[in-house]
Amino acid sequence: MCDAAGRGVRPVPRRLHSRRGRVVKIAYVCADRGIPVQGNKGASVHVRAITSALQRRGNDVVLIATRLGEGNPAPGVGELVVADPLDGDAMAAAVGASGADVVLERYALESGAARRASAALGVPHVLEVNAPLVLEASRYRGLSDVDAALARERLTFEEVDAVAVVSSALEEYVRHSSASTPVRVIPNAADVDWIASSPPLELGPGVALGFVGSMKPWHGVTHLLDAFTAVAATRPVRLVLAGTGPEEQAVRRRVDSDPMLRDRVSVLGVLPHDRVGSLLRSLDIGVAPFLPAVDFYFSPLKVREYLAAGLPVVHPGLGELAEVVGPAGVSYPPGDVTGLAEAIAALADDPGRRVTLAAEAVRRSRRWTWDDAARAVEELLETTLATTGVS
């Protein structure tokens, strides 16, 4: 919770020293009004996970956010502060009060105040880029004057001291805007131990398929329903859909209007993240039915969490999905509903193969955890502190 002045409580004790022999104070800024820290969307999970992991590793993290939201516990950071990203004075005050050695900001269309505050205070500013936000906003949210927004974005990438991105596609995107800014790829991760220890639920008979995530058009839930309808016509399968988004109501209407889907599909809506582990442990197959995209830049949390739960993953051949999933899943041609149905059917018909792929999923999930991601962030911050002469 925060008081009227926006100063936050300290959910966990501050560390006295880090593995490097001194506390590295990090001001993590989330200026995106659409990402409540305690919310349920993947971006909120990422903010909580990476800041908590950085704190656990011995850093002193002050999380400065625009919205707290609700639905999940606050992250385990040194301090949680609410500040208006458009109020330069408030942001400068929050960053200054943090005593930070470095500012790590999750890139938002509202970004700017944190950069000015870090420059005024003489501390490095590292930007975390999780999507090409201007292009997303122009495609899906009606952003006007795209050229001006791209120019602002280009200036932002040029002015920061370093950039962390979640995929190689985003690395290319950032380098196209600013060839001189250091960029490091640090993919999303999963809380492997928590998911593995979550008690499974009872979902009923049949092979259980699952989708957990945001129901945005490009996430392909409609295609998944099409494929599931074909598979369910001849096989005892069930489908669980967890999450919300622009497609949710259309999905509910379709399920409610079809007797077979109504009997076999569960639409759970918003699910607090602390219940996701148990749901995933109850499934037999995880599905990530992304639609075709020429610039697939995602590092999907859902795929990392499917693997951590020991789920074979059905996915399109897009971006780095094949590299992440490897032999722990089945790939199909992007946008091919028949191919998606065939991939699901093949796994539904072969329990032995599912067991083999599940073991590989768990093995692969342990190759990259939130602790690994936090360590990579530390390395980037330490390099930036050294090269800027602040360390």
Results as ranks from 00 to 15, higher is better:
141 R>S: 14
178 S>V: 03
164 A>M: 04
205 P>C: 04
126 V>Y: 02
309 A>K: 01
267 V>H: 01
391 S>T: 06
6 G>P: 13
63 L>M: 10
66 T>I: 08
100 A>D: 04
118 S>G: 12
13 P>M: 10
377 V>L: 11
245 G>C: 08
74 A>M: 07
64 I>T: 04
315 H>S: 09
256 D>G: 08
156 T>R: 13
133 L>G: 03
118 S>C: 12
130 N>D: 08
389 G>M: 12
73 P>V: 11
174 V>H: 02
384 T>I: 03
26 I>K: 02
3 D>S: 12
141 R>T: 11
266 S>K: 04
193 D>N: 14
321 L>W: 04
366 R>E: 11
118 S>A: 15
40 N>S: 14
114 A>N: 03
191 D>M: 06
310 G>Y: 01
6 G>E: 13
271 L>G: 02
21 G>N: 06
53 A>Y: 04
350 D>P: 06
92 A>R: 12
301 L>E: 01
353 R>W: 09
330 V>S: 05
371 D>K: 08
1 M>G: 14
99 G>Q: 06
238 R>G: 00
199 P>V: 13
145 D>H: 15
219 H>K: 05
18 S>C: 12
195 I>Q: 01
341 A>H: 02
24 V>H: 02
305 E>K: 05
202 E>G: 13
80 L>G: 03
286 G>V: 02
176 H>R: 15
371 D>T: 14
65 A>L: 12
112 G>S: 11
359 A>D: 15
203 L>V: 10
160 V>D: 00
309 A>Y: 03
303 V>L: 08
39 G>S: 10
68 L>I: 15
91 M>T: 05
327 P>S: 13
201 L>E: 15
27 A>G: 07
268 L>N: 04
149 A>H: 15
289 P>T: 01
33 R>I: 08
131 A>L: 06
196 A>I: 11
190 A>F: 02
58 G>P: 10
387 T>H: 10
363 R>C: 09
34 G>E: 12
196 A>L: 14
226 D>M: 02
